[in-house]
Design a protein around this nucleic acid. Structure first.
Lengths: 266, 266
DNA sequence: GCTTGACCTTGACGCCGGGTCAGGGTTGCA
DNA sequence: TGCAACCCTGACCCGGCGTCAAGGTCAAGC
C-alpha cells in the first residue's frame, strides 16, 4: 500500500495537490491506517494519472470530474468546448500583445498616434506645457469613449495649428495658466475668442456634424478645462456675457437656437 | 463633480473595479461629500482610463502601479517583460490544445496510440475484459513515468500477441479473474508460465536491458496485478515454489543471481 | 410628506489551482 | 533514544474582481 507521498510522486504531483483533489471530490478518499494515514492502492495512481492528463491539457478541475465519467459523445463535445476556450484565451493574449506593442511604440499612454503627433507639434510651437497636458488628457478621454472619431477630429485640429492667426489666439489661451479671476487679459482674450467663433460660425460646416460628441463627454471635457485653469471659470462667464456658452462645444446662448459653432476644444 | 458610478461608466468599468483600484492604491481616494460619497474630478477619469489601458493590455495590476510612474527606460523594459509572459502563456495554451486534440483522437485517457491499438487487439482476440483493463492501467502508469520507453515495449508485446502458443497461455492467465486461492487450475497455469519463462530466459535478450523499468514501478505494477485478481497472490506463491519471483519483472529466486528473464508483464 | 427605485457606503466571502505555514503526531533508521 | 522524514488538519495567500448583505442617500413622482 502507498502513502500519499508515494502516490503523489508516482503521478508527478505534490501531496498538496492530491489532498486538493480529495477535497474537490475528484479522487475518492482512501482507507486510513490505524494512525490515520491515507493508504492507497495502485488503482489510485491510475486514477490520479488520468486526472493529471486532463488537467495538464488545460481542462478545469470542475470539468475533469465530468469528463472522467463521460461517455464518448459527451467527451468529444466537452473537448470541443475546452478547445474553444483555449482558442479564445490565445486570441485574448494576442490582442494584449498587440496593445502593449502599441503602447511601447507610441510614447504616451492611451493615446492614438495622431494625437501623439499633435501634442508633439504643440510643444514644438511653444505652447504652454499645461495647455499641452490638458489637450492630451482631453484626447485620452475622447479616445476612450469614441476611438474611431479621433482621426477626423485630429485632422481638423492639426490644420488649425498651422493657421497662424488661430495659432496665436490659442497660444494666448495658454496664458490662462497664470490668470487669476480678475486678470485684465481675460476680457481681451474673451473678445478675441468670441470674434473667432463668430467668424467661424458663418463659414463652412465643421467635423462636428458628422462626428458629434455626447453631451456627457462635453461636460466632462469642460470640467477638465475648469479644473486645469484657475481663470477658466471667469473666461466662461465673459463668453456668456458675449452670447456664447460652453467651451468644448461652444454655442450661442441667445434664446433662439442657431447652428452650432466650431468648437474651440479647450 | 462625478459620483463613483459616473466615473466608472466614463471609463467603461464597474463600480466594484474602481473601489478595487482604490484598495490597491492604483487610484487615489478622492474627497467625500457630506454624506460620505466619493466625488471625482475629470482628472480621475483620465487616470482611470490610463490604468485600464494598461490592464486591458494584460499588465498585472501590481505592474500597473509601477508603470504609471515609470520613465521611458523602465517602461520599455517592463513592456518587454510583459510580452515575454504573454508569449509564454500563449505557448502554454497551444500545448494544451495539442494535448486535448490527442485525447480526443485516441479513444482512451492517458494512453499513447500504440497502447490503444494493443488493447483493441486484445479485445478482438477475445481476452477477458478484466485482463484488458489491467493491461491498459499498467500502460497508463508506465506511460506516465517513462513515456519514451512505451514504443519499444509495445512492439514486443504486440509480437507476443501474434504468437499462438504464447497467446493461448496469456488468454488462460485471464482466467485468474475467476480463480480463488485454492483453484485447481492455478498450479497448472503456474507450470506453464514457469516453462515459458524458462524457455525464454535461454533465448535472445529482450527489450528490458535497453529499456529498464525502475524497481518502484515494477512493485507498483505487481501491486496492481494483485489488486485486480483474487488468485494473483496464490499464483505468485506457486511461481516462488518453482524458483521464480515477481510478475511484472519475473526473475529467478535461486540464491545466485542469474540473468533476468523476459517479463510476463502481468 | 411619503414612497419608490436607483444610487451610494463598508465588509465579507467566492472563484481557481494549488503554495505555504503552523502546530502537532508517526514512522523508520542509526 | 534521537533525529529526520514523513503524515495529519486547518488556515491564509495569490489576482481581479463578482456578488451578496445590510444599511444610508438622493431625485422624482404622487
Amino acid at each position: 500500500m502507498l502513502t500519499i507521498g508515494q502516490l503523489a510522486s508516482y503521478a508527478g504531483v505534490t501531496v498538496r495537490t492530491v489532498r486538493h483533489y480529495h477535497a474537490k471530490g475528484l479522487l475518492p478518499e482512501p482507507e486510513r491506517d490505524r494512525s490515520g494515514y491515507r493508504r492507497y492502492g495502485a488503482a489510485a495512481v491510475v486514477e490520479l494519472v488520468r486526472i493529471r492528463t486532463l488537467a495538464d491539457a488545460g481542462v478545469p478541475l470542475s470539468r475533469v470530474r465530468e469528463l472522467l465519467a463521460a461517455d464518448d459523445e459527451e467527451f468529444v463535445a466537452a473537448v470541443e468546448d475546452i478547445d474553444r476556450r483555449l482558442r479564445a484565451e490565445i486570441r485574448e493574449r494576442q490582442v494584449h500583445r498587440e496593445r502593449i506593442a502599441k503602447l511601447a511604440a507610441g510614447d504616451s499612454l492611451a493615446l492614438p498616434p495622431e494625437v501623439v503627433a499633435y501634442v508633439d507639434r504643440m510643444r514644438e510651437l511653444g505652447f504652454r506645457e499645461r495647455l499641452v497636458e490638458i489637450e492630451r488628457d482631453s484626447w485620452t478621454l475622447i479616445a476612450a469613449q469614441m476611438p474611431e472619431q479621433v482621426g477626423p477630429w485630429m485632422a481638423m485640429k492639426q490644420a488649425q495649428l498651422e493657421d497662424e492667426s488661430l495659432r496665436r489666439l490659442y497660444l494666448d489661451v495658454g496664458e490662462l495658466v497664470d490668470c487669476g479671476p480678475d486678470d485684465p487679459r481675460l476680457p481681451v482674450l474673451a473678445d478675441r475668442v468670441a470674434a473667432f467663433i463668430e467668424a467661424a460660425a458663418d463659414g463652412a460646416e465643421g467635423v462636428e456634424e458628422e462626428h458629434p460628441v455626447s453631451d456627457d463627454l462635453v461636460a466632462l471635457l469642460d470640467a477638465a478645462f475648469v479644473e486645469c485653469f484657475p481663470g477658466a471659470v471667469r473666461m466662461l462667464e465673459l463668453l456668456e456675457e458675449r452670447g456664447w456658452t460652453g467651451w468644448t462645444n461652444i454655442r450661442r446662448s441667445t434664446p433662439a437656437p442657431v447652428a452650432p459653432a466650431l468648437p474651440a476644444d479647450c
